[in-house]
């Protein structure tokens, strides 16, 4: 692998890993506070899956980079400007409708991405994608079912679900943005072209949104910047909390 491709792959793995770490962390904030006991278990399950995927991706990122950083060094010692997650992932968890709609939008996109990644020319990435794909199918099923229930449940749940969609929509497009690093990986057969995935994602989310009696918000300018480290104000606070022990005791073993 030439240096440019290697560097692109590190970026890609950080992007995929950070998406799941940050989103998993947001999901974990529900623990002990979910609307019903069964959902405490379900949301913890989602969070665990995502943090598990993040761990594998960040580990591979560190190995590919070859500078001695493991998954913990990457998770706990990078500043916000070095995180590469999409903005949508770092938004505060909001109410249950916001959490569910965000999860749904993300998981469907993730599903298509992973279905493509199981055909990657990169063996380890294929292997991570194969495992993550199974779990992501379940995430789509769980979040999709809740999207229907919230949209077509009561007037209040419908209003909250629509408000969540309206708030999230301008962040969703970032999931399909590509730059030269992505193009390089597409040429190498390592990562998929996201362009053809976007209409598939749109068709699937539109179907569920409409069955949920909700409306697809109008698409305008898509907020962006996460892929190059330009985040919202939320990420800094989240990392302050997440990284506190490693920052307070540099080099300690836990």
């Amino acid at each position: 692998m030439d240096d440019a491709t290697r560097a692109a792959l590190v970026q890609y793995l950080l992007r995929c890993g950070d998406d799941r770490l940050v989103l998993g962390h947001r999901l974990s904030e529900w623990c002990g506070h979910a609307p019903i006991l069964e959902e405490d278990i379900a949301l913890a399950n989602l969070a665990l899956d995502l943090i598990g995927h993040a761990t594998l991706l960040l580990k591979l990122a560190g190995e590919t980079e070859g500078a001695g950083r493991d998954e913990d060094a990457l998770a706990y010692l990078r500043e916000a400007i070095d995180f590469r997650n999409i903005l949508m992932a770092e938004l505060p968890k909001g109410d249950f409708a916001f959490t569910i709609m965000r999860q749904f939008l993300f998981s469907v996109a993730s599903l298509y991405q992973l279905e493509a990644l199981v055909r990657s020319t990169h063996a380890e990435l294929r292997s991570i994608a194969t495992k993550a794909l199974k779990e992501t199918r379940y995430h789509v099923r769980h979040a999709g079912e809740w999207a229907l229930k919230l949209g077509d449940g009561t007037e209040e749940s419908h209003a909250r679900a629509q408000a969540a969609l309206d708030a999230l929509w301008r962040f969703a497009g970032e999931m399909f943005l590509m730059d030269e690093a992505d193009e390089r990986l597409v040429r190498a057969g390592i990562a998929p072209d996201l362009a053809p995935l976007e209409p598939k994602w749109r068709a699937q989310v539109t179907d569920v949104i409409e069955r949920a009696t909700l409306s697809v918000p109008a698409s305008g300018y898509m907020q962006r910047g996460g892929r190059v480290g330009r985040h919202t104000e939320h990420l800094g606070h989240m990392l302050s909390e997440m990284q506190i022990l490693q920052r307070s005791y540099p080099g300690a073993i836990w």
Binding site: L21, H25, S28, E29, C31, G32, L37, D40, I41, A44, N45, A47, L48, I51, G52, A54, T55, L58, E71, D72, A75, Y76, E241, M242, I244, L245, Q246, A252, W254
Partner: peptide, 23 residues
Amino acid sequence: WITRAPTLRRKMGLLAKVQDEAG
């Protein structure tokens, strides 16, 4: 302490434990 768990392994371990308690 889930959001402040100091490593990814500890984070997942604690989350799994709390999930078990709900179970």
